Computed example of a mutant assay.
Amino acid sequence: MEILALSVPTLPVFFSMFLLIYLLAYFGVFRNWKPKIRLEASSCLISISHGTPAVFLATYAIVTHSQRGFASANTSFQNLVLEFSIAYFLMDVIHYLIFFPSDFTFIAHHLATLFVFVTCRYLVFHGAFAILTLLILAEVTSACQNTWTLASARRSDLATANKLYEILSPPFYTFYSVVRGLAGPFFVYEMGVFYFSGAADSVIPRWVWVSWMIVISTAISMSILWISNLWMELYRERTGQVKEKMR
């Protein structure tokens, strides 16, 4: 695997793979869906294709490397995983720039995430342990979240999708809340303590890790706000259903 990572230009290969998945989704899997939902569903499919494999790849890249520090040098396989994620975010941000250019929040999120991955992979060559751990925390909910998103997109015109959405919402919200609301902030706190001590300044320039901390903290905060709004919406829906039954 180390030889493969060094000899093959993996970023173009990964990007081509995600582009192919997107095209297959749009022109094949979701060809009978409404145009706007079809676009969203195609984005979801490449997200699923990235998310769960990224969790396994990142986990393997971490556990097979003896040095697991916030400033440790990247291994070839860790760089490979970073390129896998860079390719996905490039593909998805192009999708949003073309079809949903007004979605500034999502585009900004993807560009900021790309900045973190690209600087870790191509500029400082250190810190992959921290970035890949965050990737695991971010993508471990991917399959559940994208299934929920697809169900939500079709819930108004498909009874089974609405039923799946209602069944999946509470466990998905709980899982997401634990990962993004507890595990994520705790790990980011540990990163902050290490980086602000100056222990990484010799290998990761201060402006780089400060930028990472800003991007990551903002992303965590937005995730917590997003899931909080979903919890409130679910509460209003369930409360409304109870009141309707009592009439």
Rank of each mutant, 00 (worst) to 15 (best):
M1D: 12
V13I: 15
A25K: 00
Y26A: 02
F27T: 09
G28W: 06
V29K: 00
R31P: 04
R31I: 14
W33D: 01
K34G: 00
K34Q: 04
E40K: 02
S42L: 01
S43F: 02
L45P: 03
T52A: 11
T52C: 12
P53M: 06
F56G: 08
Y60V: 13
A71F: 15
A71Q: 09
T75F: 03
N79Y: 12
L90R: 07
V93H: 06
H95S: 03
D103C: 11
D103I: 04
D103R: 05
F104Y: 13
H109L: 11
F117P: 01
C120S: 14
V124H: 04
G127D: 02
A128R: 01
I131Q: 00
L134P: 01
L135F: 05
E139T: 02
N146A: 05
A151W: 00
R155F: 00
S156L: 07
E166C: 04
V179M: 11
R180E: 04
L182C: 13
G184I: 04
E190L: 15
Y195G: 07
S197E: 07
S197F: 11
S202D: 15
I204Y: 05
V208R: 00
W209N: 01
V210W: 13
W212S: 03
S221D: 12
S221C: 14
I224F: 13
L225F: 13
W226E: 08
I227S: 02
Y235C: 10
Q241A: 12
K243I: 10
K245H: 13
K245G: 08
M246T: 12
M246K: 14
M246F: 11
